[in-house]
Design a protein around this nucleic acid. Structure first.
Ligand SMILES: [Mn+2]
Ligand SMILES: [Mn+2]
Ligand SMILES: [Zn+2]
Ligand SMILES: [Zn+2]
Lengths: 139, 139
DNA sequence: AATTAAATTTGTAATCATTACAAAAACATT
DNA sequence: AATGTTTTTGTAATGATTACAAATTTAATT
């Protein structure tokens, strides 16, 4: 996606499309790697000189509050971020610690039967070992 | 459940049923409140004199590794523990921060279609506002 | 283009949950 | 009781996140 499109997308969601915000969203959208703050920082520090980790925290928190990113809490010690806000599932591999998507139809998620509750977010997380790591172990 | 039964249950799962371990598991089983380490500590410190928070961490980690408890990472800044290791869903209320169960049939969870993957854990988390908090807000 | 006010970013310090570690205590075995 | 092993404890270290005030950038106005 072009930086232009990303700027327009942010603007439509009430976020002023400042340079660093566009770069961070652009990173999320293009890499699709469910990164941690540290991963984003280590990748973007080469591209954006004088980037602060605090800025990444600020921008990501803004993105989550504004609904243009999801914060994934698959494991207690790290938050991963996702620009894909559609309903989909996540698998985390214990070996390579990669997080990958799998598509699910929202209507296929089981009905919780919680009468009178307001549901804002649904997360479906799986943990295990990915096919790539299994094949490496067997070899 | 009796302390005797809990001791037998721990033993069956390869855990020596020491006093503090039995008390902590007994707490989890009877309260069913998905507590944090701090909640357990603040409740049990009255009952067990000289209890250390480190012990609770040690024991819970042992429980999770041994498969008699689940660690729930619904939000990034806290881990909650659950002695119910069956497949079921969790709802966390943003207002009262309570975590409640909802029953789901394992076979009702959508198929991720991850060919060649080994899946060890499945977590289905919902977030929102519970019926009780909604009724309080409306009143 | 210079002025100004508001919003954003930065760097550092503070916070909070968790883990590391070594000494003390409890436990089991002889 | 003596010995060796396991568990618990208390404190210090770690690591991720937030708080905060100063510096910078941005956008609007002269
Ligand atoms: Mn995703
Ligand atoms: Mn539960
Ligand atoms: Zn893997
Ligand atoms: Zn509530």
């Amino acid at each position: 996606m072009e930086q232009q499109q990303i700027a327009a997308y942010l603007l439509k969601n009430g976020i002023r499309p400042l340079q660093k915000r566009v770069k961070i969203m652009s990173y999320l959208v293009s890499k699709r790697n469910h990164p941690t703050v540290d991963m984003i920082y280590n990748d973007l520090i080469h591209e954006i000189s004088g980037l602060s980790k605090t800025t990444i925290y600020n921008v990501l928190n803004l993105f989550v509050e504004s609904g243009v990113a999801l914060a994934l809490n698959i494991e207690g010690n790290e938050i991963r971020y996702d620009a894909d806000t559609s309903v989909h599932g996540h698998f985390k591999c214990k070996v390579c610690s990669g997080v990958i998507d799998f598509r699910i139809k929202p209507e296929d998620l089981p009905n919780p039967g919680l009468q009178g509750f307001r549901i804002d977010e649904e997360h479906y997380y799986l943990k295990g070992v990915c096919a790539f790591c299994i094949s490496k172990i067997e070899a």
